[in-house]
């Protein structure tokens, strides 16, 4: 190695390897990962039990008080955005 050339450490090697792996991932797969994570979160939200997404039973509430619905809307729009752009 040339003595004036900047040195590298084990951290540089780890970083380079990770960068090469990330660069090799095709962009359609990257998109699928982003959308997949959002959909996985959406499924988790939809499976939440009633007591975690609604006001206590003694508080009168309608369908719009179901947080599961609004969280699903937010995540659904997000998944759509990452699918399109």
């Amino acid at each position: 190695m040339n003595s004036t050339e900047p040195g590298i450490t084990i951290l540089h090697r780890v970083g380079e390897t990770l960068r090469e792996v990330m660069t090799a991932v095709p962009m359609p797969l990257v998109r699928a990962i982003f959308v997949g994570l959002l959909l996985a979160l959406l499924v988790w939200v939809l499976r939440l039990p009633r007591e975690r997404v609604r006001p206590p039973a003694d508080v009168p509430s309608g369908w719009s008080s179901n947080l599961k619905l609004w969280a699903a809307v937010a995540l659904g729009i997000q998944a759509l955005i990452y699918l399109v752009f």
């Binding site: 982003f34 979160l41 969280a71 995540l75 997000q78 752009f85």
Partner: peptide
Amino acid sequence: LSVANFEWIGCVPAMILAAF
């Protein structure tokens, strides 16, 4: 548009997880 990631994937999922 990539800067929009900071408001979308960089906010919405974390806010939903925080909420529940």
